[in-house]
């Protein structure tokens, strides 16, 4: 077995009394695609935020590209190195771009920070990245306010890829997109993985999207992993009752939703 490019061991995060992430371990192989599936409150986004360094784990270990990142970076240089290893694309493309910066300038800024390229080479690289995610010249020069949600999300992906990370975390990144745009973005992600050998960590609640993009799946509930395995196996033959409930909740032809009365739930 090849060595994991991302390894998470015994990860735990508490906010005061409440436990957001209880004891989570998983690994991602180079060029692999792992999906963390769960509903709101399952702790899946907290796991992603700890991996990129936006939250500090209460305990546990995170190793990416052979470097420990359980503690906060000590220097700007260290922070930049981490940025070159792991990038993240968030759910909301409306709040993740600077409204006064064109996509071309945003991507160029990342290239300046993370690569030794000169201005001419950077310009070529911006064009390459734009083509990869399907943005044209006009969109590259426009301000974010003039772009649709789908176009903004493609800018966010191109900007993340500009740092040439080995690992890209996609935190519900395709959830807000229109179906026809979502299909375009999912194909782009598959192309990028094939061409660059990047590894993906998908945080998602959408089982059909997970089926399309992930090799392996871990299912989280209340901060813990309840099931894990190859995507096809977990989705076709779910073993844990919660995974079965998730699977049965996906609407489709002949679907009859199950009635359940809320009584004990306090919130």
């Amino acid at each position: 077995m090849t060595e994991a490019i991302l390894q998470v061991e015994g990860l735990r995060k508490t906010f005061g009394e409440s436990v957001a992430v209880a004891d989570v371990s998983f690994s991602l192989r180079p060029g692999g695609a792992l999906a963390v599936v769960g509903e709101s409150g399952s702790g899946k986004t907290t796991v992603a935020r700890m991996i990129v360094g936006l939250e500090r784990p209460t305990s546990g270990r995170i190793t990416a590209c052979g470097h420990d990142r359980s503690e906060l970076p000590r220097s700007a240089r260290e922070r930049r190195r981490r940025g070159g290893e792991v990038q993240i694309v968030f759910q909301d493309p409306y709040s993740s771009l600077d409204p006064r910066q064109s996509p071309a300038a945003a991507i160029d800024e990342v290239l300046r920070l993370h690569t030794p390229l000169d201005q001419a080479k950077r310009r070529r690289r911006v064009a390459e990245l734009a083509e990869l995610v399907g943005l044209d010249e006009r969109q590259l020069a426009a301000l974010p306010a003039r772009l649709s949600g789908g176009q903004r999300q493609r800018v966010a992906i191109a900007r993340a890829l500009a740092a040439e990370p080995r690992i890209l975390i996609l935190d519900e990144s395709v959830a807000p997109l229109d179906v026809s745009i979502q299909a375009q973005v999912l194909n782009v992600l598959a192309d990028v993985r094939e061409r660059t050998g990047i590894a993906y960590l998908f945080i998602s609640h959408d089982l059909a999207v997970v089926r399309q993009v992930a090799d392996d799946v871990v299912v989280m509930r209340h901060g813990s992993i309840v099931e894990r395995g190859p995507a096809a196996q977990v989705l076709d033959e779910p073993r844990h009752p919660y995974t079965r409930l998730l699977r049965a909740s996906v609407p489709g032809p002949g679907w009859r939703p199950a009635r359940r009365t809320i009584s004990k739930e306090t919130r």
């Binding site: 179906v179 026809s180 979502q182 299909a183 375009q184 999912l186 194909n187 598959a190 089982l207 059909a208 999207v209 089926r211 399309q212 995507a231 096809a232 989705l235 699977r247 996906v250 489709g252």
Partner: peptide, 15 residues
Amino acid sequence: ARPSLERRADRLATI
């Protein structure tokens, strides 16, 4: 264009 829960497509049919 919508991914299927039953199987993985080689590529999604896009519009």
